[in-house]
Computed example of a mutant assay.
Amino acid sequence: MSLSLSQLNALSQAAATSELLTCCTSSQWAQTLADARPFADIEALLSASDAAWQQAQTDEANLLEAFDGHPQIGNVDSLKEKYRNTQDSAAHEQSGANDAEDAVLEALAQGNQDYLDKFGFIFIVFATGKSAQQMLDLLQARLPNDRKTELVNAATEQNKITRLRLQKLLGDA
């Protein structure tokens, strides 16, 4: 569902928080952003979102809550299933994997499991416009990192995803 900015501004606190949670599943981020309304324009919303995300990421639990809202890129069965339904926003964001060879999808699935085992959360990447091979290359490049570095990397990618989802929510992407 697409909203206008004025509609988002006019929603109750609970309804606005609920809509914002479709963009990022960090409840602190969504509540902080809902509290910051009204927004004059999309740039004001995105700036407030960035600020709310900076605040939310000071607590690892908020990061993990946001990361939990994502499908795992590279789960072969779920990827193939998602691409049958191009309406799904996460599938659209991961559409670069749509034409991937099974070997690349299998390597993504294995790399994702290795990442999850090492860091305790799934691999988060702004997948829009990236091929499955590019996502695999990014995953393999980030696997040697330490957990602290990966929390920062994943938080940065999460913010890119959130900004795109906010624009989509407002029909502006």
Rank of each mutant, 00 (worst) to 15 (best):
D88T: 00
Q133H: 08
E157H: 08
S47L: 10
A90Y: 08
V152T: 14
A155F: 03
W29I: 06
D99F: 05
A91R: 00
L21K: 11
S6V: 14
L136W: 02
K82E: 11
A61F: 06
T17D: 08
V125C: 10
D68C: 07
Q167E: 15
Q94F: 09
S47N: 11
T128Y: 01
G120L: 07
A155I: 01
P38V: 10
A56K: 08
P38L: 07
G74T: 04
V104H: 01
L169Q: 03
P38S: 09
A61M: 09
F126V: 01
T22Y: 00
S78V: 11
T17G: 03
G74K: 02
R84K: 14
A44T: 10
N9P: 07
Q13R: 14
L20Y: 04
A91Y: 00
D117E: 13
G171C: 04
M1P: 15
L116R: 15
S4F: 02
L108Y: 01
L11Q: 15
K160F: 06
L170D: 03
N153D: 13
K82H: 08
K118I: 07
E65W: 02
Q87D: 12
L108G: 00
A154T: 02
A90E: 15
D59A: 13
F123I: 03
N112D: 12
G120W: 07
L3D: 03
A66R: 03
A15Y: 05
L8C: 07
I73H: 00
L64H: 09
T58H: 12
D59K: 10
D146W: 05
E157D: 11
A97K: 00
V152M: 10
A52D: 03
E19T: 06
D137W: 02
T17S: 12
Q87S: 12
G74H: 06
